[in-house]
Amino acid sequence: MNKQKTVLQAIFYIILTALAIVFIAPIIIVAFNSFKNKLYIMSSPFELPNSNTFEGSNYLRGIVSSGFFGKDITSMLTGFSDAWENSVNALSPIGAFGRSLFITVFSVLLILLCASMCAWYINRSDSKFCRLFYNILVFSMVVPFQMVMYTMTSTVTNLSLNNPVGIIFVYLGFGAGLSVFMYSGFIKSVPFEIEEAAMIDGCNPIQTFFKIVFPILKPITVTVAILETMWIWNDYLLPYLVLGSRFKTIPVAVQLTMQGAYGSVDWGAFMAMLVLAIIPIIIFYLFGQKYIIDGVIAGAVKG
């Protein structure tokens, strides 16, 4: 009986290990191809780099051609001089990485602030308008982006929100559904009495919210923050339509490199870009793994 169990256990380990290798392999393959000469990538993608095929400059070319970093960091890393500034590929002060970071961080912060306030108000108020607003918010979670992409893009362009600051406002609107829904689910279980006591003691609703309610919401705030961060950081179509190629985020930079190449792709630089796009996500994952997995489960179960 025991021996049978050990054998079974061993078989399970073999299956799991084999699958784990299958899961990691694609990333590893991209990683070692990013150190190969561009001629040897598509022709033999599964060969490790050797002294013949090694190429160290992929990352420099990838950073420059995609505008991954801004002007200062790029010239510091690559030694490219002012000659670049007048060329077609002139780099802006902020690169795709900085822009993605800026948009993600500020959009998420704004969503957390506005959604928590909005959800608390909706739950504590007995007006019909709030109920209606909440129902439309929940409805918006079901509507696919394609339904509004054309009209939203023209509205946003007309309002001159088609820049890295304006898009934060756009994300606030598109993030509203999920975030208010998640906060509402949590607020329903928060007893009203503490807030009541605070308000009777003379706190106005704003003080009550920030001193009493918001700290209680911390667990759900972490969950919402993770879900919205993963969405906005990886989002492609919305920033592409709203910002276009003038202000590239990381996914847009990756896609446009491929789209604009028409068959003459610099595969070396492209592999380097893929690695650069993955590294921030892996760092985020390593630091917040437990929160991320728990947050994703909570989001799935409630959503």
Partner: peptide
């Protein structure tokens, strides 16, 4: 206090979702 609590979300959501929809 409804403008403070509801205002920002209502404006953003109306602009990018309700009207385009």
């Amino acid at each position: 206090y409804s403008p403070v609590f509801l205002g920002p979300m209502l404006i953003a959501f109306t602009t990018v979702f309700i009207v385009p929809f």
